[in-house]
Design a protein around this nucleic acid. Structure first.
Lengths: 153, 153
DNA sequence: TCAATTAGTGAATACCCTTCACTATGAAGT
DNA sequence: ACTTCATAGTGAAGGGTATTCACTAATTGA
């Protein structure tokens, strides 16, 4: 009962820790960090303003300034003035940034295969379903005051 | 099949994100951060030297100096010279630190109940078993094994 | 036109973490 | 003992993520 729950809890923490550490290391080899990679990922859908990125990532606009500064310095993205709003900057992926995103997609697939590749489909399906219930409980409880009002869904 | 794996992967990420954010917020209210809380947790088993803490947490000794400085300043721990080695400092929990650890234990239990409390035992057992297989794959792949026990309340 | 709002950034700060250099102490080896 | 080597901890410097506050510049709206 509780003992099982506690074990599941520790498993979740360990899995997350192993995965994030592994990701961190391979990211670092590519000259990326988690925060910067997340930003790149958002840009793979097309250019965005920094304000937009701040809301999407749930961080302050000031933080985005710093992240974009670093990504520009490393050649992953480019800033351009917004064609319709001269206050805003449109951030877009450079070819290097596009390569990085492509590599991230491949890396994720490799990670998925590594982690879940050996699990038989029926067990995995049951696992996903149970996890969905766990997530539902978490989402319901979450104290996420990150974005005030969402525009779309 | 790969689709199922990808979904499980994203579930894992989301669950970890929700849980760590929730933990971070409640820790912050207690004047703690994840790094400091992990250190406190290690001390609940008795006083330790900073060197020892560094190895247990998998960080540099210099980092421990800073964490202990902050915890001393906030009254969670105390430094004492080691009785047998005058180079070393023995770090131990203050009464406030003990209270904090007790609170973390309770918080963890609440989190476990919240997250897994509604899952029927048979499903949870299957879930734990599958997760164990996932963890085995992750541990086998891990660049370097994780330092001791990780604990987040 | 004028006021309010919005986009972005400089300055300052908090926190985690690292490496390198250095002091003090401990433990051997000769 | 004396010298050498290893160990415990910290100062200094720096990279990275994140915040708040104050400010400029541009947009929007009345």
């Amino acid at each position: 009962m509780t003992e099982l729950g506690r074990r599941a809890f520790h498993q979740l923490h360990e899995a997350a820790a192993l995965l994030t550490e592994d990701t961190r290391v391979s990211m670092a080899r590519r000259g990326l960090t988690a925060a910067r990679a997340n930003l790149l990922w958002l840009l793979s859908g097309g250019p965005r303003t920094q304000r937009d990125l701040a809301e999407a990532l749930g961080v302050t606009p000031r933080n985005i300034t710093g992240l974009v500064d670093a990504l520009v310095a490393d050649g992953f993205v480019a800033r351009a003035t917004h064609p319709e709003d001269r206050r805003a900057h449109l951030v877009s992926l450079s070819p290097t940034g596009q390569d990085a995103v492509a590599w991230m997609v491949e890396s994720e697939q490799r990670a998925v295969d590594l982690v879940y590749g050996a699990i038989p489909a029926p067990e995995l399906a049951a696992y996903v379903e149970t996890t969905e219930a766990v997530l539902a409980a978490l989402r319901a409880h979450a104290i996420r005051p990150l974005p005030e009002e969402e525009h779309d869904a």
